[in-house]
């Protein structure tokens, strides 16, 4: 007999199926087909231009970030433990092997250059191998759909080679190694 309890249980289970992709994870590749030569944040697209200040009040643009290098890595940080583990991993395992690539941290939380510089310093990332960009107007965040841990690689021609969450550095290393 279909009781009220059964109906409530069924309703509950149906409700759970609406909880997103986590209940039934998918391994299907659903990456959209990208039109060649288009501009945007997806891999193979031409990276959108930007102009932001770094923590030394110098202006950094897409062109200047790539100048004289094989490419640029742009990592979005919120000065949190997950970010620290990623940045620490990059600093010790990736950056020493790629002197021909610029590495940037994007601080999209601070409302001023001074505050961003203070955060970079407090977290141990000031004046080192990273240049911290202060995304006060959220230009970079918007251009690259960035959030905590987003890691973008742009090659010297301005083409996006990677745009994904930082994992263990394996993908990043592979992509940087393959830069022309």
């Amino acid at each position: 007999m279909f009781s009220c309890k059964s109906a409530a249980l069924l309703l509950f289970l149906v409700g759970l199926t609406a909880c997103g992709d986590n209940m039934f994870p998918s391994g299907t590749d659903k990456r959209p087909v990208i039109q060649s030569g288009s501009s945007g944040s997806s891999v193979t697209q031409k990276a959108p231009d930007f102009s932001v200040s770094d923590t030394n009040y110098a202006t950094v643009t897409l062109a200047s970030s790539l100048s004289g290098k094989k490419g640029a890595v742009i990592y979005f940080t919120m000065w949190c433990p997950v970010c620290d583990s990623h940045m620490s991993s990059m600093r010790t395992s990736i950056i020493p092997s790629f002197s021909d690539v610029n590495f940037f941290l994007v601080d999209y939380l601070s409302g001023s250059v001074a505050e961003s510089a203070a955060s970079a310093s407090a977290n141990g990332y000031a004046g080192g191998v990273f240049t911290t960009l202060v995304d006060i107007n959220h230009t970079l965040t918007s251009n690259f759909n960035g959030t905590m841990g987003t890691t973008v690689v742009v090659d010297s021609a301005g083409i996006v080679r990677m745009n994904e969450d930082y994992r263990d550095g394996t993908n990043l290393r592979t992509i940087l190694t393959a830069l022309p």
Partner: peptide
Amino acid sequence: ERSINREYGKYVEPYKK
């Protein structure tokens, strides 16, 4: 362990985590 094909709304090359 689960499959992942999307991160923060962006579809990515599927992997396992």
